[in-house]
Design a binder for these strands. Structure first.
Lengths: 337, 337
DNA sequence: ATGAAAGCGCTAACAT
DNA sequence: ATGTTAGCGCTTTCAT
């Protein structure tokens, strides 16, 4: 184990502790020759400053928290999170921060761990993954004056966030379906307790509205972003006889397609399906799924960079970043016309 | 933000810093009445000890690292990691540790971040996710005297690890296929650079051998745990005319089934398929996939508990924990007989 | 059972 | 440009 201290390095390079500290922290006012000599010693010894001591003496810890509320559990079984985590970890690594992961498994745990997150002063800031509407977390963070960025638009408008362009993404889907001549375009929405669910629904509404098509309530059913939800949503929709369904997530689209197989409906001949997310599995469904790609990984990177900006330059004004989506046309939306 | 200190709490409760410290750390030798009074104050104020100061003064940091080597990237797109992380985070939360996540995106990054992990003394121990054969990481951890536990059996036998019972799991699959009367049982293995790949292959070999069936090399093809790998593996296998294939991961099984659809082979009528992992998607393939369930989440929990044991009681002897698997028979292995 | 006091290894203000 | 010094907030002997 490492037992080297600043003091030791100072002795070995024949300077004082402070000088070594300056070299390590890239402060000016060190003679180049001296700087080089110290760096030499650091190199040779493999010295690494003790993180706890730094944190205690300085102000920053070098830790960024990723906070995953318990309400997110639903989503945890799909590849969304690995990707988000990849983006976040990449950005942390590149910016010399270390990522602390708080996965909360229940509201009680959330309650219990929150003080640990905040009050022990162990993170410089935190990225919040997908809050529900009405989440009490964000106001708390504001009150505690912790720098934070939310992934996915929250329901408070003072918070900084990074979101994908759900509105435009879903609008494009429905516009395309209309253009392709589908007449009874249904949707299985995300949960209305999420802003993303609301926004994707709104894109659906707006696209129809802009084309003078009125919303038929029997063609709209609320889902929950799970495969099972997509399955039962499709079952609910079937009697209304849709000829196309915009499903607000790929995972649900998988469920919807399963329901369709059970009902002996062919995709896209009898009914078109479009998803949202572009999960890896979307490319390998039978037939391949038309969907909306969102740059999850880049959103993670963006969130970290934004957070660092806030940490270093203050929270005002709130940063609002919308990542563009990409409409990926495969086969489930393309019936022979 | 929190600016409460031990000193402050001491003042408020009319005792000394040391006494408060004792109360907080559950040390004996505090009069019950005093203890209660202090706890009262801590409650009311919402005081939380500063983590950095604790780490610096004491010996432990309360952080556990989860280290994900860059070689793991392949796996990161399937639901394996979310589950592992869920298990690990649960165990951390329950044992009052905080989880630090190191996701390495390249060997260079691995090299660069390793010292940060170890030398800054910021973690009390580390869980290593799935090393490749010949990984240099484990020897380094040993040399640096860092408590660690590996998920998945490593290729060094002095390390503590938690693994699923790959041998028994795959043995059960092949034994079942033989029992069901399949004659030309093939396998798409995992990468031979992983111990899990080797072990699953070995289970296949042993099951056939025990039944006096010799291995036909044209029925064995090496995969890489990706969907694409399963697809091309199946294509390679087809000319050898297997009537059943044990595919060493569900993700590859998905690819294999896709290849089969392309070749107009029916599952299981023409060819049986069995996977390994029991991912959520296994239950909703067409038809549902027979597979081997491994308790990933529990493995994560087990790993953390083992790590804590090592931290507190020393690394000797190496702990080796094998988690049982469960054979899940669905439809892809059950042709009408 | 409690308090006083000495660090833990670093940063940063201050002095030179 | 460099060194001296005073903490950061806690744990942990050592006294009492």
């Amino acid at each position: 184990m490492n037992r080297l201290t600043l003091e030791e390095i100072a002795r070995l390079s024949g300077v004082s502790r402070s000088t070594v500290s300056r070299v390590i922290n890239d402060h000016p006012n060190v003679k180049p020759i001296v700087r080089e000599r110290v760096q030499q010693v650091v190199q040779e010894t493999g010295y690494q400053p003790n993180q706890a001591a730094r944190t205690l003496a300085g102000r920053r810890s070098g830790f960024l928290g990723l906070f995953i509320p318990s309400s997110v559990k639903v989503i945890f079984d799909d590849p969304y999170f690995p990707r988000l985590i990849q983006g976040i970890s990449k950005a942390c690594n590149d910016n010399d921060y270390t990522m602390v992961l708080f996965v909360l498994h229940s509201p009680e745990e959330e309650e219990r761990l929150y003080p640990k997150l905040v009050r022990t002063q162990l993170v410089d800031g935190v990225v919040i993954a997908h809050t529900q509407v009405g989440d009490r977390l964000i106001p708390k963070l504001v009150a505690d004056n912790i720098p934070f960025v939310v992934i996915g638009q929250p329901d408070v408008d003072t918070a900084s966030y990074v979101d994908t362009d759900n509105l435009v993404g879903s609008y494009a889907v429905v516009a395309h379906l209309v253009r392709r001549g589908y007449k009874r375009i249904a949707t299985i929405t995300g949960p209305m307790t999420t802003v993303s669910g609301q926004n994707r629904r709104q894109g659906y509404n707006k696209a129809l509205h802009d084309r003078g098509i009125s919303i038929d309530d029997s063609l709209v059913v609320e889902g929950d972003y799970t495969e099972e939800g997509g399955y039962s949503g499709m079952l609910t929709l079937l009697p209304a006889n849709p000829d196309a369904v915009f499903v607000a997530s790929d995972t649900m689209a998988l469920g919807a397609m399963r329901a369709l197989r059970g009902a002996d409906k062919r995709v896209p001949a009898d009914i078109a399906i479009v998803g949202f997310d572009d999960l890896p599995s979307a490319a390998i469904t039978e037939p391949p799924l038309t969907t909306v790609r969102q740059p999850i990984q880049r959103a993670g990177i963006q969130a970290v960079e934004t957070l660092i900006d806030i940490i270093e330059n203050g929270p005002l004004p709130p940063r609002r970043i919308i990542m563009p989506t990409e409409f990926v046309i495969r086969e489930t939306s393309e019936r022979a016309s």
